Simulated scan of single mutants.
Amino acid sequence: MKTTITFNLKPVSIICAFLLFIAVLKLPIEYYTFLRIVIFIGSLLVIVSLLKQVIWVIIFSIIAILFNPIIPIYLYHKSYWIPIDIIAGILFLLILFFNNPKEGSKKTETKKQREFKRDKIY
């Protein structure tokens, strides 16, 4: 039996994007260590929940590698990290829009079911 892990990505994406946009500011090194941990975990959660969408898995695998706290990648200049932080933050926000199911299809299905039930009553 195949089990799938599903959870709401909205809070994870919002928190990760917010932390990445704050990372553009000049902050102590402890914040960036914390950022690596949170973004790494957040990108792994996105990967696990969107396994069937290969492009998102590839994109967030790259983010996980860049921000991994186990074997950190150091670019040594803040100016290199600023565009990476902004792009990663935008990608976390894009997940909010592309991961949502179509609400219109749910409404039409319930409308059809209601019509069917009503028509079937004799």
Results as ranks from 00 to 15, higher is better:
115 E>Y: 07
107 K>R: 08
28 P>S: 05
16 C>P: 01
110 T>I: 13
5 I>L: 14
62 I>R: 03
99 N>H: 03
43 S>R: 01
18 F>E: 01
96 L>F: 06
65 I>K: 15
37 I>M: 10
109 E>Y: 15
50 L>S: 14
60 F>C: 00
29 I>K: 04
26 K>W: 10
104 G>Q: 14
9 L>D: 01
26 K>A: 11
113 Q>K: 09
46 V>E: 02
46 V>R: 04
112 K>Y: 03
19 L>M: 12
119 D>T: 05
112 K>V: 11
92 F>Q: 00
13 S>Q: 02
83 P>V: 10
67 F>K: 03
100 N>H: 08
122 Y>M: 07
75 L>T: 05
32 Y>V: 04
55 I>T: 15
39 I>P: 00
45 L>N: 07
104 G>H: 10
3 T>K: 13
90 I>G: 04
25 L>I: 14
77 H>D: 08
15 I>E: 00
20 L>P: 00
75 L>S: 02
88 A>R: 01
29 I>S: 01
33 T>F: 13
71 I>A: 11
2 K>Y: 12
29 I>L: 04
12 V>G: 03
48 V>H: 07
122 Y>W: 14
65 I>C: 14
23 A>T: 08
63 I>F: 02
48 V>M: 06
92 F>R: 00
115 E>T: 02
23 A>G: 09
42 G>V: 00
74 Y>A: 09
111 K>Q: 11
93 L>K: 04
104 G>C: 07
122 Y>K: 15
35 L>F: 03
72 P>K: 06
64 A>C: 15
92 F>G: 08
45 L>A: 11
108 T>R: 07
80 Y>D: 07
32 Y>G: 00
16 C>F: 00
102 K>I: 13
118 R>L: 08
66 L>T: 12
18 F>Y: 04
8 N>I: 07
14 I>W: 01
33 T>S: 12
31 Y>H: 04
47 I>S: 00
80 Y>G: 07
87 I>A: 07
17 A>N: 03
36 R>Y: 11
117 K>C: 06
59 I>M: 07
117 K>T: 11
55 I>R: 15
92 F>C: 01
106 K>P: 01
97 F>Y: 13
118 R>P: 06
18 F>A: 09
25 L>S: 10
22 I>V: 12
22 I>C: 09
94 L>H: 05
74 Y>N: 08
38 V>I: 10
103 E>S: 12
20 L>A: 08
83 P>T: 14
85 D>M: 09
83 P>G: 14
72 P>A: 05
104 G>S: 12
31 Y>P: 00
112 K>F: 05
57 V>C: 12
69 P>L: 08
104 G>N: 13
37 I>Y: 11
56 W>C: 08
19 L>E: 11
53 Q>E: 13
91 L>G: 01
65 I>D: 09
107 K>L: 07
77 H>L: 15
